[in-house]
Design a protein around this nucleic acid. Structure first.
Lengths: 205, 205, 205, 205
DNA sequence: TATGAATGAGAGTTCATTCAT
DNA sequence: TATGAATGAACTCTCATTCAT
């Protein structure tokens, strides 16, 4: 009863790891099958092709991530709250689900248009358009004189990278500063604080 | 004499694009050969293996990037100058050489330790250790009460992502806000301004 | 009671088309199942293997065709009647059941011995041996001075191809003459006439 | 020097046999490679895909056959000569190159339009259009009162099947008459004679 | 240096067939 | 009878790499 759907799901779970680790080109169907404990042919039975499996996972990943962001936006009553909440939600999520961010990273590098279209596709099924919601909110905050950055594009581009890259970028920083960062809960909390402070001091009026 | 070396160089130029577009696993030796107008076997004659060619390019890319950063650090006499210079240098560089940043992105996702070791390797050949230099400068600035973030790790992690991701991340922002960003010189200048403002307001005391 | 057998029959009907279109090697069990609206496993339940299904259909096809020929022979009281009847019966039959002739064509090319043995098998269950009957008749006609071709082999080989190929061969003729043949009832009637005339003028004395 | 091109040619020779024996769907690339004494990959190196190899062979077969027919037409000064020459040329050719006729047979059954288009393609590169030539000749012969069949379509359909099927059809006749035909030179000569007689008596005026 | 041919391991995919229910 | 899941062998095709020249 529980076992029934498990093959199809297991493939998904294992494939996410494989694709995150090796990319679409480097991933091996056989490895996925072996690790999922499933006959190789079942992957094609359920997902038709490696490419398609990849697409399904990309979509699933975004489908998991996007609503998280949206909720954070909706919930935040002031830009202050927004600058506090967003880094917290994001970084906690990503530090647990590194595979998801890796896949999005790959896709951003290799096929950015695809990401755009998948996200738009996801949004199109949500009644109150998140883009509209967000642009609205920012515009109101700016008119009320609460924030210093009027352009939503730059506002978002001042936030997102800090969240996403705080996990992926650490090795580069380790090299630049010749130190070793221990990926503890403490470090993550400090990271969140530092970002929130930067955003609040930098963009609140 | 000029023609002699051109094959070897052309392979390098073309391979950078190939690896940036498809990653190590997805890149095809034959495609590189064809686009370089070179016999496939020559790639192995010069670079012995696909992997090795990849490594050479990664190293070359970092070898081009790292000194740029170092110079910016050395040149900046105050944190204000630093927050002005770094985004300018980086983003101008990356918006022209997207392939380089894509390769570094791939590597950060797939084999972060490799990046670390290559960078360390590069630094070890520079007399005045850049990591030392940078940590020193930040420490002095903090002690003088010029900046609000005492930890070099967080300070760097507050800067780097904004620079790197400002190029790669735009498609995601386009989707989130349902707009089209035109990648003009104007946009880039605005981006640099917005980041510099954020950094100065957010981390200068 | 009616529904019960319909699956088994439907498979047969659909499989004939599939085999005629793609041959044994090119036919796909899944395609047959889908088009028959039947679960793939049922094909094996009823016919145990693809090969066997093929054999069943070959036999069924010949079992439908052979008696038609035999009857024509028996019915014909003179060679003139024979040369009139045979093309008519054959070509009318084949122009409606192209799949049957295609299957026989495939088999003639790929496994001629199989056809021979199946036909012999069919004949062995008919009391008055058709081969004997036919050879007898021809021999008598020849002795009576009615026909010019004494050898039954050549006589048959002067008739059969004209009947079978009149349908299959048209595309080749279209190409050779650079015209388009419309497969109307008129064309078929003309074809039959032309063949009967040829045979009668060519082999009656 | 002679060995040089032999791989590419050898594949062609062996593949013809394989396709003739098993059809496109049943043919095995590995078998072709083994029998040609060639690495499997070389087949794709030279011919890109199994399908394409098949197409190349079909075209090559027709390219060998078509000119033979054309020459026979051109050479024949009277319908009598024509009815003598065509069966002789054809049947001698086919009895030696059974694979060619088998391939054409397969194609006629499976993808008749393809044959049509390939033949047209071949014709389009011949200066004096064979279709025109043939139609002309037949029309003149008919106007001169030399032949009884005015329609070139039926005239050709009265000849071609007899030539082609005289080889392929023998097993069917063996079964129908319950005899064994020995495929000797004598049999072939008799076959040619019988056909020529049939055609001359049947269609000459 | 340069080339076209060759190689071998293995990749993704297919497919007839079987199993459990 | 009927089904969806599973299997395993085989298939076509790919690709990094090497060889002979």
């Amino acid at each position: 009863m529980k076992k029934k759907q498990s093959s199809k799901q297991k493939i998904l779970r294992v494939a996410l790891k494989e694709f995150a680790a090796y990319g679409l080109g480097g991933a091996r169907v056989e490895r996925i099958a072996r690790q999922a404990g499933v006959n190789k042919a079942m992957i094609f039975y359920y997902y038709s092709s490696k490419q398609n499996l990849y697409r399904v996972i990309i979509k699933k990943s975004l489908l998991e991530l996007i609503p998280k962001i949206q909720e954070t936006i909706v919930v935040s009553k002031s830009p202050e709250q927004f600058f506090d909440n967003l880094p917290k939600v994001y970084i906690h999520y990503f530090s647990q689900k590194q595979e998801v961010i890796k896949m999005i990273g790959f896709e951003l590098i290799q096929d950015p248009d695809n990401i755009t279209s998948v996200v738009r596709d996801i949004f199109s099924n949500i009644p109150e358009s998140p883009p509209g919601l967000l642009k609205n909110k920012i515009s109101i905050w700016y008119k009320k004189g609460l924030i210093s950055e009027p352009d939503p594009v730059h506002l978002i581009l001042n936030i997102l990278p800090l969240c996403i890259f705080s996990i992926l970028g650490t090795p580069l920083v380790e090299a630049i500063l010749d130190i070793k960062i221990k990926n503890s809960g403490d470090f993550i909390d400090n990271r969140i604080n530092s970002i929130s402070n930067l955003l609040k001091r930098g963009m609140l009026k």
